[in-house]
Amino acid sequence: MSLPASHWTPAQLAERSGLNVSALHFYERKGLIISTRTTGNQRRYPRDTVRRLSFIRAAVHVGLPLADIRLALASLPAGRTPTAADWERLSKSWRAELDTRIATLTRLRDDLGGCIRCGCLSLERCALFNPSDEYGGQHPGKNTLMETRVR
């Protein structure tokens, strides 16, 4: 089976995208990109996969899990490559989650001086803010820093 020139080898796509071939294979295993196979069972990627990879990298960069990215890509008609309009629509749908993460990270940054389970780095201070680990007794397995609070 001869593939059109519109397909790239993994090495060509890796060079064009700036990713390692192993990253391409990883994204393929995760269902984020697809390849076809030659008669010699070698992978070939459609050229527009580079745009899909750019989308994936941007979404990963803002902290989205690969599962969410895969769902977003699966929502596109016929599995097509995302357009600027798709990115705009999908990024709006992720906004609330990202705002929550930003609030959590801001809180973590602001409270970093006191951050073990009860909220501080000092066992002496814990006795003041959380005597006898009351918080841990009331909320086992929870971390006060990971709770999102409206300030």
Results as ranks from 00 to 15, higher is better:
L3T: 06
P4E: 10
W8K: 08
W8D: 11
W8N: 06
L13P: 02
A14G: 12
A14N: 12
E15H: 11
E15W: 03
G18F: 02
G18N: 05
L19I: 00
L19M: 13
V21H: 02
H25T: 07
Y27N: 06
R29Y: 02
G31V: 02
I33F: 06
T36C: 06
T36R: 12
R37G: 06
G40N: 12
R43Y: 08
R43C: 04
R44K: 14
R44V: 09
P46V: 02
P46H: 05
R47D: 02
R51I: 05
R52Q: 08
L53G: 02
I56H: 03
A59F: 04
A59V: 01
L64W: 01
L66Q: 07
A67S: 15
I69N: 03
L71Y: 04
A72F: 00
L73G: 04
A74K: 14
A74D: 15
L76P: 10
P77D: 14
P77C: 03
R80E: 15
A85T: 11
D86F: 05
R89S: 06
L90M: 09
L90K: 00
E97A: 11
D99K: 13
I102H: 09
I102D: 04
I102G: 00
T106M: 11
R107I: 00
L108W: 05
R109N: 09
D110I: 01
D111P: 01
L112E: 05
G114L: 09
C115P: 01
G119P: 01
C120F: 01
L121G: 07
S122D: 12
L123W: 03
L123V: 10
R125D: 11
A127T: 11
L128M: 06
L128K: 06
F129P: 00
P131R: 03
P131Y: 00
S132P: 04
S132D: 14
S132H: 13
S132L: 11
S132A: 13
E134I: 07
E134G: 09
Y135S: 03
G136P: 05
G136M: 10
Q138D: 09
Q138S: 12
K142T: 14
N143Q: 14
T144Y: 06
M146C: 10
V150T: 11
R151H: 12
